[in-house]
Amino acid sequence: MSFALNGVGLTHANGFVALDGITLQADQGEHIALIGPSGAGKTSLISLLGTALAPSSGQVSILDFGQNTASTAALKRLRARIGTVHQAPPIPGRQRVITAVLAGRLGQWPVWKSLASLFYPLDIPGAREALARLDLADKIFQRCDQLSGGQLQRVGIARVLYQQADLILADEPVSALDPVLAQSSLQRLIDDAASRGATLVASLHAVDLALNSFPRIVGIKAGRIAFDLPASSVSEAMLHELYASEGQILPTQSNEACFTPQAASTPPLRSACT
């Protein structure tokens, strides 16, 4: 069991109900995509799994930790095993890429090593390897404010690859990337999770990307789970129902992916061009 939510609700201080009656379980090593219209509660669900938010009701158990019983030290140990890719990479502009990547292991490293790495990075090969998987090895000693938005987002992914977390959470991890790069970067994350048997939960705005890459799809609408099915059982009608509030067209990767020659090199998209 990787995590289990049982009847979990989340109400913000201003009374807004972000999540309501969520029951969701995942075995270790499962790959799950969260889809749904914006504002449905995908980010709230990810924050809950990442222990950034505590539930207002219901039980949460993550990596066999009951959230309510965890002490500060235990919570810290738990958090070191959870890696999160944020939609907007939370990386200071003046920090160097190498430091931003090494920061992924602050929760695991002894303090002396974390402090020393501020003066001289102690694991250059490790960081380079993580960056190389995202074609960023040449940027290793650059400052983050010299990178483009897409490059910065991939640095955020490299940090989580480097962290080697047991539970990887990704909140719109490839939103700033063009379709080709999005597909390949997401694939790196999936491959990494698969090779280490880590659980991966990713919220994605592009439905085609989710259906192509993830075996299990959870649709979320208005703070509730609309469906929780294998990707092959998700029908067009269900998707239209899920995104009813956003109009007739399903959100997919931008359509030019279907027509540009590069698209040939990526796996064929199933529902993107229908």
Partner: peptide, 13 residues
């Protein structure tokens, strides 16, 4: 949220 202590989070973040 990755388990870093407050001093380290300040130093790196």
């Amino acid at each position: 949220l990755n388990g870093a202590s407050r001093p380290l989070a300040i130093l790196y973040g």
